[in-house]
Nucleic acid binder design. Structure first.
Lengths: 114, 114
DNA sequence: CAAATATACATAGAAGTTCGATGTATAAAA
DNA sequence: TTTTATACATCGAACTTCTATGTATATTTG
């Protein structure tokens, strides 16, 4: 069970985060666990990796944050996707489809199911 | 007709270069034209981008170079993929398949796909 | 035939990224 | 009560991409 390359992780980080936030609001720590689970351990973000990405996305206006107190009494910074973020996700999905078509063409395999 | 994001290009650079060299030996300038053509202009490497990547791949032993004189009389640095490079390409292909499975899984969570 | 363009390689520096290390703080479990 | 899990944050090293710049030669155009 190997981990994926830095480059592939980097390319998928933003679409994955935005996709997760499209479904439900979430917070940094949970997003890390969520991605780890969904990817079967193949994508494991450190906190020092994810938090700056969230800050960057917020600064660009793609997500919005609000502090909340969980039932546990613990403070959490919840993130929601913005309408700008939804537009961006749409573009990212199209880009992902495009690169898959290019790669498939080069590899001469059937285009991917995405 | 938009260009792809830096991240997606970065993730695909090495597999694309190695794939091209699997078919035929080639040289920097030609690889740039080749990728531009295959991608329908969506991936356009500058020379300052590609040459350092080729040097890096050679340093890592994934490709090998040799100077040749073309019929035109022009000097060209031809690159071939090494057996190490073929192994690496196999891994890269597997990684690409994996990330696609993860991404498609995440996108299936929400109903409105592109 | 002179000038412009295309071919062909190379490096430097700016800007941006990932990621391990480190720090703070609190709740839950051992 | 000590450890582990939860939850946020920043820093600096290492690496990347990309624009700009430089060198040089062949081909095409005016």
């Amino acid at each position: 069970m190997e981990k994926l390359s830095k480059e592939l992780i980097g390319a998928s980080t933003i679409p994955i985060i935005l996709s997760i936030l499209t479904k439900n609001e979430s917070y940094g720590y949970e997003i890390i666990q969520n991605i780890k689970e969904i990817s079967g351990g193949k994508i494991e973000f450190g906190e020092g990796t994810l938090y700056p990405v969230l800050h960057k996305l917020e600064k660009k206006g793609l997500i919005e944050s609000s502090w909340k107190i969980a039932e546990s009494g613990r403070k959490r910074k919840y993130y929601n996707i913005s309408s700008e973020g939804e537009k961006e996700l749409k573009i990212e999905k199209e880009n992902w489809t495009t690169i898959n078509q290019i790669i498939s063409k080069i590899w001469k395999i059937e285009p991917n199911l995405i």
